[in-house]
Amino acid sequence: MQNEKLRVYLEGTLFAAIAMILSMIPTGIGSSYSISLGTIPLTFFAIRRGMLPGLFSGFLWGILHVVSGTAYILNVYQFFIEYTIAFTSIGFAGYYSKKISHSIKSHSMQTARKYLIITTFIGSLARWFWHFVAGVFFWGEYAVWGLDPITFSLLFNGASMLSTVAVTIVVLILLFNRAPSMFIPKTKN
């Protein structure tokens, strides 16, 4: 049992590293819009292993941004919101992991796809909320086109989130259609 837990968290560490590598691929337009490719492996991991391991892996991904020097830190509060809470929140994508696993095992593929889409929205929406908050309180002074901080954060963080969700769903559905068993971890008997 202890070895299995260790394996799950080592797998989560690996997925956080993969997410970090994908984060280095430039997908942004300006400083306020980007597609977060790292969301793909983290959402996959959270669906595969569940919410708690997903939260752990998301937390590591946020910390890796700081360690790698790719984080934009204005102050300790913004760091805490954007690089610990927001990145950790992507783990909420594991909310329906058991339902997805059960649906796959019972060959209810349409139900599994539905939960896969819903849970991708849950994790991304949770992360978006915290980036939205940070955008209002910390990045509002950088608002373009004379937008107020709330509208600026809503539009730019919202556009980034919706784009990220779309890309993540497409990739995960393609993986799911090809090999749904990848979404169920093998367990030792």
Rank of each mutant, 00 (worst) to 15 (best):
I21N: 01
F129T: 04
T151R: 11
S36R: 04
I40F: 01
F156W: 15
S160G: 13
T120P: 01
A93G: 15
L55F: 10
K114T: 13
V136M: 04
I150F: 15
Q110G: 02
T120V: 00
G140N: 07
F45Y: 11
G38L: 10
E4L: 13
I81D: 04
T88S: 10
K5L: 14
G30T: 06
Y83H: 12
H107K: 12
S106H: 09
L155P: 03
I90W: 09
K186R: 12
G135L: 06
V133D: 05
G158S: 07
F137Q: 00
F121W: 14
L52F: 15
P185A: 01
V66P: 02
S153R: 03
L10H: 01
G12E: 09
P180E: 07
L10Y: 02
S97Y: 15
L42N: 08
F132S: 12
L155N: 02
Q110W: 02
R127K: 14
G54Y: 11
V165A: 11
A126M: 12
T39S: 14
F45K: 04
F15K: 00
A86K: 09
T168I: 13
Y95D: 00
S57Y: 12
V167Y: 13
T70M: 13
T151D: 01
V76Q: 08
S160Y: 04
S57L: 09
I73M: 10
A143E: 04
G50M: 11
M20Y: 05
H102F: 10
S89T: 01
W61P: 00
I73H: 08
L147C: 03
A17P: 10
S103W: 08
K188H: 14
G50Q: 10
M24G: 07
M109R: 06
L116F: 03
I81S: 05
G58H: 08
F183W: 13
Y115D: 00
L172S: 05
S160A: 07
S163D: 05
V136C: 03
A19Y: 13
F176M: 05
T70Q: 11
L155Y: 08
F138A: 14
T164H: 11
G140Q: 09
K99S: 06
Y142H: 12
N177Y: 08
A179G: 01
Q78Y: 03
T164R: 09
V76D: 10
T168N: 11
P149M: 10
I90K: 08
R113L: 09
A143S: 14
R49L: 01
K105C: 02
A166C: 11
K98D: 14
I35L: 09
L125N: 00
L22E: 08
A134N: 07
I63W: 15
L10Q: 02
F176N: 03
I29G: 01
G94I: 06
F15T: 00
E82W: 06
R113S: 12
G158Y: 05
I169A: 02
K186D: 02
I104T: 08
H102M: 09
Y77S: 01
S23M: 05
R7E: 06
P185W: 05
S181E: 14
A134L: 03
L174R: 01
I150E: 05
N157D: 05
